[in-house]
Design a binder for these strands. Structure first.
Length: 350
DNA sequence: AACACGGGGGT
DNA sequence: ACCCCAGTGTT
């Protein structure tokens, strides 16, 4: 592959004019960059912004994060998804307090060793917050480079990522690794768009782009098809007592670990079977009307939910179950987005 | 190398 | 209704 002309001058000039104004760019401390980068993993900027502002008000320092209780931490992440991100953020914060006096280390390998910080995030924090000459190759950058070099290897293949990382570093100006990395990602987010519709007329690198020259920009990047989702029937019981709605804590590992949900069984149950399951847990209920069937799609599973409303005496509950009134549902217990369809009902009263 | 892990946007 | 997006940790 012949070398490509330098991209940094045009790229950085474009970035200086087109960078979005974002809260973590206004005050790019290592902690701000760290939290924003974790939030932005698999998450669009628009979705992360309100979470970021609320987070920094609640937990302005790494030490505040290290000392936060788990329930409050989950609540700050409620609806963002991939909840292991927030647990790893706190694990890492505790290590940073123990090992590094509460300051993130300005060292790529030490960053990479922290929970939740992998190749991409170590590179983003290292280059943006500490000005280290390291790569930060996310999906945007893979897309930009697949087109710049007109390269049709599968971007999900680690070998491809390694090759692109090499190219990224060949173009990185030593005096501006952070702006360069940010500019590549910003170009991918604003101009070199996915879904086969890049805005080449607005691209500062169009004159260098080999896909553009070959007319292949709409077919890149190439990636192999994802595996089909598993369909999972789910029976949900919305049980109300005088003390609120019945909630159940999910197991400490696996999907939606440690979060709260209405009573549910991950199988299709008849009305009678559902009541029997609750009774065998020591919770006796009177079943009411059926719930509107609802669907929730995770990347790997599709939940098809149906079930019933029910009422119960406000009796003592087994471990892992609580009665949650409207206030505690709003302030304390974290319900994942999967139950969005039942939120309005849960918020009626309790 | 394959899989587990959420949620949102576009058409 | 169906498509796409894509970091880190575990196995």
């Amino acid at each position: 592959m012949p070398t490509l002309s330098p991209i940094a001058p045009d790229l950085l000039a474009w970035f200086s004019q087109n960078a979005r104004i974002l809260p973590f760019r206004q005050d790019p401390t290592p902690y701000h960059i760290w939290v924003s980068e974790i939030m932005l993993q698999q998450t669009r900027v628009a979705a992360a912004l309100e979470y970021y502002d609320r987070w920094m008000k609640a937990l302005p320092t790494i030490r505040d994060l290290a000392e936060c209780d788990e329930e409050k931490l989950h609540k700050l992440w409620e609806g963002l998804g991939y909840y292991s991100r927030v647990r790893n953020l706190q694990k890492a914060a505790r290590i940073v307090c123990q090992e590094y006096g509460g300051q993130l280390p300005a060292d790529h390998k030490k960053l990479l060793a922290l929970p939740g910080i992998g190749d991409y995030t170590a590179g983003a924090i290292g280059s943006i917050a500490f000005h280290l000459p390291v790569p930060a190759v996310d999906g945007n950058v893979l897309r930009v480079f697949s087109r710049l070099y007109n390269d049709d290897r599968d971007i999900a293949d680690p070998k491809t990522k390694k090759a692109y990382t090499q190219w990224v570093m060949e173009h990185q100006p030593p005096e501006a690794p952070g702006p360069y990395n940010e500019a590549l990602m910003e170009l991918g987010a604003l101009v070199c768009l996915p879904n086969g519709e890049p805005l080449c007329d607005a691209c500062p690198l169009a004159h260098l782009c080999r896909a553009r020259q070959a007319g292949t920009q709409n077919t890149l990047p190439v990636k192999k098809a994802a595996k089909a989702r598993r369909i999972q029937p789910v029976t949900v019981l919305l049980v109300k007592s005088e003390q609120g709605w019945l909630l159940q804590r999910r197991p400490d590992s696996g999907l939606l670990a440690g979060l709260w949900q209405p009573a549910l069984f991950e199988e299709e149950l008849s009305r009678q079977e559902a009541a029997d399951r609750l009774a065998s847990l020591g919770i006796s209920v009177q079943l009411g009307g059926p719930l509107k069937p609802a669907k929730h799609i995770f990347s790997h599973i599709e939940w098809r939910m149906s079930g019933w409303q029910a009422t119960a005496e406000a009796a003592p509950l087994p471990d892992g179950y609580v009665w949650a009134d409207r206030e505690s549902l709003a302030q304390q217990y974290t319900l994942p987005g999967a139950f969005k369809a039942y939120r309005p009902l849960l918020e009626t009263d309790g």
